[in-house]
Amino acid sequence: MATNSQDFNTIIGPDASFKGDLKFESSAQVLGKIEGTITAKGRLEVSGGSECKATVLAKEVIVEGHIQGNVEAGDLVELKPKGMITGDIVAARMSMAEGAAIDGHCRIGVSNNAGGSAKSSTEVKPAAIRAPKVVTT
């Protein structure tokens, strides 16, 4: 688990605020305020005190702060004790600590759609490519 700030390739500091689309090639930690869309191919940590009014797409999303928007994780959504998500969640698995809060529609562990768009940005399974069948006559 990436807990140290050194484990993240990108850190958005607590005094930073950003409006727009953010894309990370690997892991990132958000301490400031972001409005827009955040896409990460690795782990994304929204630390305590930070507020994101954003759509989040990542492989793993760790929430200690507040996310106001939809969250899609290819693998895991982890809510720490003071973490809060107000929006829809799609993930393969989710862990939630005592004290965390969720308000929104959830789709967890349902393989066909879990992290659909997040996966498309990270890795595409061969089964997904094969899906549309062409019938020849």
Binding site: M96, H105, G109
Partner: peptide
């Protein structure tokens, strides 16, 4: 408390 492998479809309001 959601164990790995559990499936959830629906709106959640917690706490």
């Amino acid at each position: 408390d959601i164990a790995v492998g559990a499936q959830i479809i629906g709106e959640m309001k917690i706490p």
